[in-house]
């Protein structure tokens, strides 16, 4: 088991814009490529790519566009993939509420954030009203 106190090393980082519908597809492809490179199992690849798809769409529709940074991470000999989604949008006033299943600001089903959190091994969310949102997910190879 990977210890969370160990240092994380990052490689193969790439950053891409998420400013249109086509970029959500590209984000999925970029995450899939690194997930294969990191030798994640097919199920874990699928979970990570699905989480990335939810988060990329959030970046686009709620954050007004932003970027995705995806990289290979290693910690204590274990390899994984990290994807970080950042936007300069309105931010999330109540993060706990936004992470509740079924809570939605109106357009979706309210599964995007909470679902992405369940699908990832690690999940962090930083947001404040008026200061944008950054969400990161990590999936480790088993």
């Amino acid at each position: 088991m990977t210890s969370s106190s160990q240092p994380v090393e990052e490689s193969d980082a790439q950053e891409s814009p998420i400013t249109g519908n086509g970029d959500v597809v590209k984000a999925r492809q970029a995450v899939r490529a690194l997930a294969q490179q990191a030798r994640l199992s097919l199920v874990d690849q699928t979970k990570l790519v699905t989480a990335a798809s939810e988060l990329a769409r959030n970046t686009l529709s709620y954050g007004g566009g932003g970027t995705m940074r995806v990289s290979i991470v290693t910690r204590a000999g274990t390899t994984g993939v990290k994807a970080v989604f950042s936007d300069q949008g309105p931010g999330i006033p109540d993060v706990d509420l936004a992470l509740t299943d079924g809570w939605s600001s109106g357009r979706g089903m309210g599964l995007g954030l909470s679902g992405a959190r369940r699908l990832a091994d690690e999940f962090t969310l930083e947001s404040a009203p008026g200061r944008g949102t950054t969400v990161s997910v990590v999936k480790w190879a088993r």
């Binding site: 979970k47 599964l111 679902g115 369940r118």
Partner: peptide
């Protein structure tokens, strides 16, 4: 299928 169910759908 496994991912969809875990996602909550």
């Amino acid at each position: 299928a496994m991912t969809l169910v875990e996602l909550g759908l």
